[in-house]
Nucleic acid binder design. Structure first.
Lengths: 190, 190
DNA sequence: CGTTTTACATTACAGTCGTGATGCGAAAAT
DNA sequence: ATTTTCGCATCACGACTGTAATGTAAAACG
């Protein structure tokens, strides 16, 4: 048999191609053939590593959450030890905003998956778990209602940034204003 | 020739069928044949009123914004004359949340269109105009930054409600808390 | 009344889709 | 050295897509 191969590596290779296709041409353009072509391979390879298209999609969704997770931890690590809760939350929340091309691509894929999940209960379940987990972590640093608000607010800002409705500057200002209202309430009062 | 027909009426009939399909099976299931079947007609009819599929989609997007607009004005009218800004904003904002099946259906379609717009600049432009118009109206009743925040927050809440991540009760509590923070700032301070 | 125009149905076409089957060379296992 | 098994390519299938072409019945118009 041919050289033994790490299947996870191949799967990530395919999933990366999928995400390039999805980010550039939308999730509806994600077909076995397009993904295979983008990966420089054949549909046979894709089929070999993912029995069905849905399996491939699920795996790609995991990759996206993986990206977000990685960005969050490295942003948090960059803060040094014992960061203030406000800084920590800001660092994590901004990882959900499409502030550069990489995050923008992931954001487009994530949005596409949101729509995709509307008809796939199992996909929706994966997303739900991710969101709730994140909110619960936020809630260790601020009151639960504020954590809920923060997550929804950031997600909404990301949505509007993706459609170029709000520029990054506006989104960041909104985010900072909200964090202010939580961490230094009514600072400008007599 | 056959009985003269109001083309707008026919187009809305088709668009309604489109939205039923999209709400139930996702926007990816929206094909000329499925829409035609849902409308109890043939693809020929659809082709007669929409030269191309994209035209049909654009029209359907208009219908969705029309629905939202109608809901908003009737909710506002129900408030009676000279409503308080806070009540007005709350009445309008809640029309963007999927609080019943009708709004949920529109929400799913709207979300699908968000993803659809990611690859269609003209669709994105339509959405942008709607969002900015709404935000600017909000801004006549509250400071501009708060208006921006409100819209993003509501959109994010809607997203999470659509995936059943947050229940209606939570979303409404978050919304009310935010409105409180704008209209009765720091009420609980010494 | 005849003609033209409108509303829609039917069918055809070329392309893409997901999936299953099959083939085949290379390397690991024996 | 031979057999087995893995990695991947290739091809075929039926279903589905958007669009164009064509047909047809009916009512408006001259």
């Amino acid at each position: 048999m041919p050289k033994r191969v790490d299947p996870t590596e191949r799967r990530t290779l395919i999933a990366d191609a999928l995400m390039r296709v999805a980010a550039q041409r939308g999730l509806e353009a994600v077909s076995l053939r397009h993904v295979a072509a983008e990966a420089g391979a054949t549909t046979g390879l894709v089929q070999h590593y993912f029995g069905t298209k849905d399996e491939m999609m699920l795996f790609a969704l995991d990759v996206v959450s993986g990206h977000i997770g990685e960005r969050m931890s490295s942003a948090v690590n960059a803060l040094g030890p014992e960061p203030a809760p406000r800084d920590l939350l800001r660092a994590m929340a901004t990882q959900l905003l499409p502030l550069d091309e990489a995050r923008r691509a992931d954001g487009r894929v994530g949005l596409a998956f949101f729509a995709y999940a509307a008809t796939r209960p199992d996909v929706a379940e994966v997303q739900r778990r991710g969101s709730v987990g994140l909110r619960d972590f936020f809630a260790t640093l601020m009151p639960l209602p504020a954590a809920t608000t923060l997550l929804a607010l950031v997600e909404g800002l990301a949505l509007y940034m993706l459609t170029d409705t709000y520029p990054a500057q506006t989104a960041l200002a909104v985010l900072d204003e909200f964090l202010d209202s939580v961490f230094s309430p009514a600072a400008g009062r007599p």
